[in-house]
Amino acid sequence: MMNLSSLPELDRRLTQVAIENMLEKYRIFKTVTFEAKEAGTTYSYTERFHGPTHTVTDQTAAIAAHNVDVPAARRAYCAAIDSVVERLDSREQQLVRERYMKRDELYDYTIYNHVFDPPVSKDTYVKIRSKAFYKMALALTDLGMLSLEALLKKDLG
């Protein structure tokens, strides 16, 4: 059992991969438009063998539910990520937003050399990113969007 007064020790690499994957999903949801499904109106003959005759399929209702549920789930996901990022320190927010949340993908060196004012070293950039991802991992776990168990540092002793 984890001691609640101490913060968990996370594997930095695993945490980075998990958070980057979630931010990539965010970017895709924000930039790729949702294609609504439409009901097909041409019916083709399909041979039906005698099976349960009491089953009914409502293609239009299933499509309508999909067209409402998918965009709503995407909006909820993006809103949750946005709220987590808003709680980070200003430099952490700037790093995450500029590097991972914008349509145009920028490289790390562009961020620490040109976006940060004044520019920071690569080591400082890595520290800021690590702290941001650690905080995000804890917050996303609280929201039930991430499992901390997989990110815990393994004792090799």
Results as ranks from 00 to 15, higher is better:
Leu7Phe: 14
Ala64Pro: 01
Glu105Ser: 13
Asp11His: 13
Glu105Phe: 04
Glu92Gln: 15
Arg12Thr: 11
Ile63Gly: 08
Asp155Ile: 00
Val126Asn: 11
Thr46Leu: 05
Leu146Phe: 03
Gly144Val: 09
Leu106Arg: 13
Ser130Thr: 15
Thr41Cys: 08
Val32Cys: 09
Cys78Thr: 15
Val126Met: 05
Pro118Ser: 06
Tyr125Leu: 06
Lys102Asn: 14
Arg13Lys: 13
Thr53Trp: 02
Arg13Ala: 14
His54Glu: 15
Val115Phe: 09
Thr42Ser: 12
Arg129Ile: 02
Tyr43Leu: 14
Val120Thr: 07
Met2Gly: 03
Gly51Leu: 09
Tyr109His: 10
Val68Cys: 02
Glu98Pro: 00
Ser130Gln: 12
Ser121Thr: 15
Lys37Ser: 13
Ser121Met: 05
Arg27Ala: 12
Ile28His: 05
Leu4Asp: 10
Ser44Trp: 02
Tyr26Trp: 08
Ala18His: 04
Asp11Ala: 08
Tyr45Met: 11
Leu10Cys: 06
Ser121Val: 05
Ala79Val: 05
Glu24His: 08
Val115Arg: 05
Lys25Pro: 01
Asp123Gln: 10
Gln94His: 08
Leu146Cys: 08
His114Val: 00
Ala39His: 03
Glu149Ala: 14
Thr141His: 13
Arg12Trp: 04
Tyr109Asp: 11
Asp104His: 09
Glu105Tyr: 02
Asn67Ser: 07
Tyr125Glu: 08
Asp69Ile: 07
Ile111Asp: 08
Asp123Gly: 04
Thr41Lys: 15
Glu47Arg: 11
Leu10Arg: 07
Ile81Asn: 02
Glu38Pro: 00
Glu20Leu: 06
Asp142Gln: 14
Thr42Arg: 12
Asn67Tyr: 06
Met136Pro: 09
Glu86Lys: 13
Val84Lys: 03
Asp104Gly: 03
Asp58Met: 11
Met101Ser: 07
Glu86Ser: 14
Glu24Gly: 06
Glu98Val: 07
Glu86Leu: 12
Thr33Val: 07
Gln16Glu: 13
Arg87Val: 00
Pro8Gln: 08
Tyr109Cys: 01
Asp69Trp: 00
Asp82Lys: 08
Leu23Lys: 04
Tyr45Leu: 15
